[in-house]
């Protein structure tokens, strides 16, 4: 049985890296006595896969993992058992059973939605955003094993707009490419934006970046991984709606 689980990473755990988070969840799975399948071979590993990682320092209410089980368990029970053994700040929000033959989350997910709060006194963000997005080409250098290359990240910004303002600054939402094919880190986006605005690193506080959700394209629409669930479509997948 294969479960896709949505979970959150709150402020108090935002400094743990993706590797740390994976280790933490593996150990939580043991504590919760979840019947996780293991890989075969010399060094058996739990069959747990993750959606595109979140950078250190960011929070999220839309993280996903993909767990293979050796025996059936209701998604609701999975979440309950995990939540009783997780450190504060990490919580399973909802789980669904999905078709085992589907590809990995990492290869299916193509976009992620972020909320970026930026304190940028003196900057007219509305105008800056408009001009920034008007550029047909935003080239950055990406370094990889093959060396450095220029990449145009403009097509990776699908939406970038101001949605509000509070005492912490301007609140923006950004829909960006994410996943194994191409991806844009929101931290880098903010960096480029400030550079474009001519603002030095020191003139603004570091932004608060929060991931809202992730999306994949299926049947002509953008859906979240939870919508891959094999439930009856009544939205009850998280409340014991599991059926074979």
């Amino acid at each position: 049985m294969r479960l896709v689980v949505k979970y959150e990473k709150q402020d108090r755990v935002k400094y743990i890296s993706h590797l740390d988070l994976m280790r933490t969840l593996h150990r939580a799975l043991r504590r919760a006595r979840i019947p996780v399948a293991f890989s075969q071979g010399y060094n058996p590993q739990p069959k747990v896969a993750f959606a595109p990682p979140l950078s250190v320092g960011m929070t999220s209410q839309g993280e996903y993992m993909d767990v293979m089980l050796t025996s059936a368990m209701s998604p609701q029970e999975f979440c309950q058992r995990m939540n009783s053994v997780l450190p504060q700040g990490i919580a399973m929000l909802r789980a669904v059973a999905i078709d085992e033959s589907l590809p990995s989350l990492m290869s299916m997910i193509e976009r992620a939605l972020y909320r970026i709060t930026l304190k940028a006194p003196g900057l007219r963000m509305e105008e800056i955003l408009k001009d920034f997005l008007f550029q047909p080409d935003i080239a950055i250098t990406k370094s990889s094993k093959k060396g450095e290359r220029l990449v145009n990240i403009r097509p990776m910004i699908h939406r970038l707009e101001i949605v509000g303002q509070n005492e912490e600054g301007v609140i923006m939402e950004a829909m960006l490419s994410a996943g194994s094919r191409e991806s844009l880190n929101p931290g880098q986006l903010v960096h480029l934006l400030l550079e474009f605005a001519g603002a030095g690193e020191g003139s603004c506080c570091l932004p608060n970046i929060h991931r809202l959700d992730m999306f994949l394209y299926r049947g002509n629409e953008w859906i979240t991984p939870l919508e891959l669930g094999e439930d009856d479509g009544c939205g009850q997948a998280d409340c014991g709606g599991y059926s074979l």
């Binding site: 108090r12 400094y15 890296s17 939580a28 250190v56």
Partner: peptide
């Protein structure tokens, strides 16, 4: 929080581990 954003391995100073009292 401002400091932790700037240091290497901020998790060293974070606490909040499972079984922390």
């Amino acid at each position: 929080d401002e400091i932790l954003r700037q240091v290497t391995k901020p998790v060293r100073y974070m606490g909040n581990e499972y079984n922390m009292v």
